[in-house]
Computed example of a mutant assay.
Amino acid sequence: MSAVAVHRAVLGDGRPTLPYAEAGPPEGKPIVLVHGYVDSWWTFEPMLRRMPSALHAYAPTQRGHGDADKPSDGYLPEDFATDLVAFMDSVGIDRAVLVGGSSGGVQARIVAGRRPDRVAGLVLLGVPAELSDKPGVTELWDTVRELEDPVDRAFAKDFARGMTAAPIGRGFLETVVDENLKAPARVWRETLRGLLETDLRSTLSGILVPTLVVWGDQDTLLTREDQQTILDTIPDSRLLVYEGAGHVVYWEAPDRVLRDLAAFTADRT
């Protein structure tokens, strides 16, 4: 098992301070794990604990989430993408493979398209091409826009449970829910609003770095056609289908994700 160290990155220029987890030997190839909606670095804990010696992982918690600073604004995908580059600057990462989980892949691909000099490769783990066309997301928005503090724990638990095809460990589920509840209602609301009001398909254009797309065929949120849109738009991309896995493949199959990630990263510098 790999040791996981937790630090804080001061982004400067009025930007928030972000906690981040780090795992893997310093000589490993750098990867940055970018979490999705209302998660924190803890969402990648199953991977971080198993990090192979070939990889050196950084997993920041984004603004408004977990134990990160919670400014009053700045919750558009573009804001998170700008923070991501500032995070890399803060911890001294010149170039890395960006690994986006769920909606975290949106800001990761924005950076890949705009700053290819900083991105050796892009991995999208259950990342949508578009969200505004998903009935489940529309239903979620109807609830989230009415949320008040404190966010109801039963709602957050049901939300987390819906991310996998098979039940996840009770202890890990409770940790995920605890982390989700650290985001105030306004962050749940403004982050989802930003995802719905942004033209997400446009964030796929201009990406020329090698890209690995991973999708679980039991994902109740994203369809194969949605993932095909990503493949059709990013020239150097390929798809891996995880049979029997749901939306958050890195909870259900962390060892497989790491094997595929290590293989993909082996030829990137």
Rank of each mutant, 00 (worst) to 15 (best):
D94E: 15
E148K: 14
S90I: 03
V144Y: 11
V85E: 03
V127H: 00
L98M: 05
P135W: 08
F87A: 02
M88L: 09
L147C: 04
D142Q: 14
L122A: 06
E78F: 13
L76C: 07
T143C: 00
R145W: 09
I110A: 01
L98S: 09
D83E: 08
Y75I: 03
A160C: 13
L140A: 10
V119T: 11
L122R: 04
A108W: 05
V119Y: 02
D133W: 01
T164P: 01
P128M: 09
T82Y: 10
M88T: 09
P116I: 05
R153N: 07
I93P: 11
A165C: 10
V91Y: 07
S102M: 12
V85T: 09
W141A: 02
L147G: 10
R153E: 11
E78P: 00
I93L: 14
R118P: 09
A160T: 13
F80D: 14
A81N: 06
M88H: 02
M88A: 08
E146M: 14
G104R: 06
A112D: 04
K134N: 12
G126Q: 04
E148F: 00
G113L: 10
E148D: 13
R109D: 11
L76G: 15
R115F: 11
R153M: 01
G100M: 08
A129I: 10
R109I: 08
D89S: 02
T82G: 13
F155W: 15
V119E: 05
G105N: 08
E130M: 01
G121E: 07
A86I: 02
P150S: 13
F159H: 12
A81C: 05
P128T: 13
G162D: 03
A112F: 05
L147T: 11
G121D: 05
S103E: 08
P128R: 01
E148Y: 00
A108K: 09
R145L: 07
E139L: 14
D149T: 10
E130D: 15
S103R: 00
A81Y: 09
M163I: 13
G121S: 05
D117M: 03
P128F: 08
S90G: 03
D158A: 15
V99D: 09
A108H: 03
S103H: 00
P128Q: 10
A165R: 02
S103P: 11
E146N: 12
L140D: 10
D149L: 14
L125V: 13
R95T: 11
D149Y: 00
Q107I: 10
L140M: 13
A156P: 10
D89V: 01
V137K: 00
V91D: 04
S132M: 11
L76F: 14
F159K: 00
A96N: 03
D158Q: 14
P135L: 08
T138Q: 13
P128W: 11
